[in-house]
Design a protein around this nucleic acid. Structure first.
Length: 407
RNA sequence: GGAGGGAUACCCAAGAGGCUAAAGGGGGCAGACUGUAAAUCUGUUAGCGACGCUUUCGAAGGUUCGAAUCCUUCUCCCUCCA
């Protein structure tokens, strides 16, 4: 692993609102921010290969520690020289710890708050959660796996991504203030345990020298908890900061509000990563406006597989339709128009809506592949537009042209 | 010419006197999709002046309190034998 002289994050330009232009330097390459990061949960972007991923403009991809450990295994990835080499991507990578999966798989069963412990139904693969960690049934092998903050960081050290995340516990938006406090306290304990153990791993040379750690701000829908969490997470001497939870992942306005609650606490020299930031193009623009530098979301890939494509305002995209069009709808049967009239991805250059509708009708996976490619290209292009706009002091104009003023 | 089998909603296909406006698929339409238990899931799919009414299981009659279901005739399709 090469040694890097440059700082991990450089703030290139601050601008109107809180939008800012930055650059992240990793051992596997630079990342211009703000940027969208495609999700390669199992070490692959579903239906694409990494040649596609490079071509569509991705700068970094995500892997998920729980999914990788449950399948190929972190030890084997280490033998291959780390995630970037193993997958052939060879570019910057980030791994999520699995904390999110634990929480939402737990939540998907019948659950109730119970002193920070939750009772659950038997269909959930999460067998037990307590302050020390989690017992999870491996969905692929059926084996029971133990996850603690320490174990999660060891797996991430071996997987060897450029950026690793704390093993946290997301606060549910539906939690009462008392439950949210309990959950947040555990999340903080786990994050600090994650960080301390990761520092140890790095000192021992088990974690790559150029790997960096991100703690995660939680706190759900409570301003005071969000601020408390931000203070605590930012007090750690880490290269970056992440913010997460349902209120980051779902509604763009709530995401933006949540970001605004903590904006003054985030140090300007740390990149801010919105985990699973939802809302597609709208979410992206609104979060950038509140100072977000990097974010990921599964929607471009998942929606693409389900027949939904992102479209720009030039093709009728707006906040009401979430900048989406469904290529499965009958109205597209006779359409020889591209998915998006201004997009210059190979899908929009060569294929019509009618043809893609036909591919979905016959159940041919190529349709899903084409939309996966388009959607990721779209998000990466939007990132490039945003960066250019910030550089040329026109972010406000770009924002207005996409997000209409609704009173 | 003779002997069987069949016809059910947009399509395929269950049902063999009341619990059937009619299972299940497909297709259509609508909706959802967070750090991917997801190329997935959910709802809906005769009509209307909708907690009710009207029409509907190839067609026309009949039996019955009640028929997609039983009987008669007719139409069309398939298989086998001449």
């Amino acid at each position: 692993m090469q040694v890097i002289d440059e700082p991990f994050f450089t703030l290139i330009k601050s601008t109107e609102f809180r939008a800012r232009r930055g650059r992240i330097v990793t051992a596997h390459g630079c990342i211009e921010t703000p940027t969208f990061m495609p999700v390669a949960t199992f070490g692959t972007i579903r239906l694409l290969d990494f040649e596609d991923v490079r071509r569509l403009g991705a700068q970094i991809v995500l892997g998920n520690t729980l999914h990788l450990e449950s399948t190929v295994g972190s030890a084997r990835i280490k033998q291959f020289g780390g995630l970037a080499k193993f997958t052939g991507w060879n570019g910057p990578t980030l791994t999520d710890s699995g904390g999110y999966q634990v929480s939402y798989m737990w939540k998907s069963g019948t659950h109730s708050a119970d002193g920070g412990n939750r009772t659950h139904n038997s269909t959930s693969p999460i067998q037990k959660i307590n302050d020390k960690g989690v017992m999870v049934k491996n969905t692929w092998t059926g084996q029971t796996m133990r996850i603690t903050p320490q174990i999660a960081m060891e797996w991430q050290a071996d997987i060897g991504a450029d950026m690793v995340m704390a093993f946290d516990q997301p606060t549910f938006d539906t939690d009462s203030l008392d439950d949210a406090r309990i959950s947040l306290a555990r999340s903080h304990d786990w994050t600090i345990a994650s960080y301390q153990h990761w520092l140890k791993l790095q000192n021992e040379g088990r974690a790559p020298a150029c790997q960096v750690f991100f703690p995660i701000i939680q706190g759900g829908r409570f301003r005071e908890l969000r601020r408390e969490s931000a203070e605590k997470m930012c007090s750690l001497d880490t290269a970056g900061i992440a913010i997460a939870g349902e209120s980051i992942g779902i509604n763009p306005d709530i995401s933006a509000e949540t970001l605004s609650w903590v904006a003054d606490i985030i140090p300007p020299d740390k990149p801010l990563y919105g985990m699973g930031l939802g809302g597609g193009p709208e979410g992206f623009l609104k979060a950038v406006r509140e100072g977000l530098d990097m974010f990921d979301n599964t929607s471009p890939t998942r929606l693409g597989r389900c027949g939904l494509a992102f479209i720009s305002p030039s093709s009728g995209g707006n906040t009401a339709n979430k900048f989406r069009v469904s290529l499965k709808k009958g109205i597209n049967r006779d359409s020889d128009s591209p998915v998006d009239s201004l997009c210059d991805c190979f899908v929009c250059k060569h294929y019509s809506r009618g043809y893609i509708k036909h591919l979905f009708n016959i159940g041919e996976g190529t349709g899903a592949r084409l939309l996966t490619y388009h959607n990721l290209y779209f998000m990466e292009s939007l990132g490039a537009l945003v960066r250019h706009a910030i550089e040329t002091d026109s972010f406000g104009d770009l924002y207005e042209s996409w997000i209409e003023d609704r009173g």
